[in-house]
Amino acid sequence: MSTSSKVVKMRRTLLGYLPLESPMHKFHPLIKTFFLLIVSAYPLLIDPPEWNLIGAIVMIIIFVIARVPLRILKYYTAIMLNIFWIIFIAYTFFGGYMPGYHVITKIGPIIISWENIMMVFVIYLRMFFAILVIIFFLSVARERDVIVGIRALKLPYVIAYTVGLAFRSIGLSIIDFNTIREAEKARALDIKALPLAQKIKKFGMYIVPLVALALRRTDEVSNALESRGFKFTGVRGYKRTDYIVSKYKFQAKDYVAVIVMISILTLILYLKYFTPYMSLHNSILLKILSRFFEVKT
């Protein structure tokens, strides 16, 4: 239908589209899963906000290298901002008070302390880094990558199968959901005009057709499974071939990627537990900020 000829060939991922020439396609699917598991641990271990900020910047560079369309990030800026305000309000006003805190000011019974403001920065930047890691994973991984990842780890096939079928039914349910919403509109349901309580109540109505559709499909899906010789593992003398995984080979660059990820993890653990560099007391950013709030630490 489209007439333009300069279309970049894209491949659909869990969250959006990734160009076919993205270097991420050259890695073994398992690498993507490892990335999610290992790199998302970094922010959890890192306390000083500037380190997490560096991590976040590095992530954005990785986004660019991997050719993930950056407009994906745009969709999440609103969410990121909201998270900031929630954390900011929660910690500054309702963070509690402990003896020894540096009081900045008092608003009625609420004490605003330096320690709580510091926590806003620590926690927010930690989440910022972590969310970028998750968005990256969802932007580069396809359902198939996840399944191949699970299979390559030699987990029981039933897990891969369940996850796969879950992906499939979520996909179908999203299509159903949109149709149901239109069908309700066609029946004069003006959900926007309703008060919140009514809105929530009417939302429950989506469940009826979604369940009905899923139930009717379950029968057909299980028939289709059986008719193609599927048996749950554990049946004697039943051995599946794993053709899909056999198509992927772990190559030198995959090993390098894993080694790099694990080395960084080890380095962070070493710095955190055996050196003082990763403690909050040595955070340069916090020192600058404390001067801004005129707190003597």
Binding site: R142, R144, G164, R168, E220, V221, A224, F230, R240, Y243
Partner: peptide, 20 residues
């Protein structure tokens, strides 16, 4: 509802893998 997997290749391979 008889498309059980997330790519055509997995779909065609599915029965063959089951045959071992």
């Amino acid at each position: 509802s008889q498309f059980l997997t997330m790519t055509v290749e997995e779909e065609i391979a599915f029965g063959l893998e089951n045959l071992g």
